[in-house]
Amino acid sequence: MKKNEPVAALLIILATVGTVVGILAYEKYARSGLYTVELIARSPLNGNWLARIPGGGWQSRKFTVPYGEETAIRIRNIETVSHGFALPDFKVEPPINEIKAGEVKIVKFVADKKGVFPFMCTVWCSNEHLQMNGEMTVE
């Protein structure tokens, strides 16, 4: 009977704090190796594209990838409408027609050219759809 209290406390801490820590750790350590850049797709009125480079913080409509390497971009559509993604100067695999609301896609390409290249949304997502674009720097 005396051992009951610590066991219950442990179970409760595991169910709450343990769950949160476990989820964040899994995402950070087990999955961050899957991609180099994380892109969040948002309509221009909601803040437009947002990019995160591992260890590099957040940037609006801009990101940089290293030259000559295979790059993986994880694109998360956190909105309630469909978006798309195109990087016309590179051969992106697998090609993407549409990223539906709530969907996450990982695309890969080899950054074999140096310079600044445009990327954009390919699905009519709002009246401001044509402004939903950004620039990728390869260096």
């Binding site: 169910a15 769950t19 949160v20 989820i23």
Partner: peptide, 12 residues
Amino acid sequence: IFNLFVFTIILM
């Protein structure tokens, strides 16, 4: 406690 676990995920 099981539902506590489920609701932790729900809140998160």
